[in-house]
Amino acid sequence: MAHIITSDREAIEIAKQIAGEFVQVPKKSGDAYVSNVTLAGVIKLLSEGDGSIGQW
């Protein structure tokens, strides 16, 4: 069974732990190759309109 995150603080801590496990798509494969800060900002903005976007 999957772990259920029960608080904002826990969500942030888990995100910090797994952040290094994600890789970007190489530019030659179609990635815009923007910084992680820019990517997070875009996801934040899109999530304001649809919160499910930020849940992947």
Rank of each mutant, 00 (worst) to 15 (best):
A11L: 11
V34W: 15
L45M: 12
M1L: 02
L45A: 15
F22Y: 14
S52H: 12
I4M: 08
G41R: 13
N36H: 06
L39P: 09
Q24Y: 09
I4T: 11
D31W: 10
R9F: 04
S52I: 14
L45I: 10
S29M: 12
I5D: 01
V25K: 07
W56P: 12
A15I: 03
T6E: 05
L39A: 15
D31S: 15
A32M: 10
E13K: 00
P26D: 04
A19M: 13
E21S: 10
G41W: 06
I18W: 08
A40L: 12
K28S: 13
G54K: 02
G30N: 06
S7M: 01
V37Q: 11
E10T: 02
K44R: 14
V42W: 15
I14N: 00
P26E: 06
G30L: 04
F22G: 07
L45T: 13
A15V: 03
L46W: 10
H3G: 00
L39S: 14
D31R: 05
K28P: 07
S7D: 02
S29Q: 14
S35R: 10
G49L: 12
W56T: 14
K27H: 09
T6F: 01
A19L: 15
P26K: 03
S29V: 08
I43S: 07
R9H: 03
L46T: 12
Q17S: 09
S35I: 09
G54A: 12
A32H: 08
K27A: 07
I4H: 08
Q55P: 02
E10N: 04
H3R: 08
S35C: 10
I12N: 01
T38M: 11
Q17R: 12
Y33W: 10
E10L: 01
F22N: 08
D50P: 04
S7K: 02
D8M: 06
S47K: 04
L39W: 14
A32D: 10
A19S: 13
A15R: 09
S47Y: 03
V34S: 15
E13R: 00
H3V: 03
A19Q: 14
V25W: 03
I4N: 04
S35P: 08
K44S: 05
D31G: 13
D8F: 11
V23Y: 15
I53W: 00
G41C: 07
G30W: 04
T38N: 11
I5V: 10
I4S: 07
A32P: 09
V23W: 15
G20A: 00
H3K: 11
H3A: 01
W56K: 06
Q17F: 03
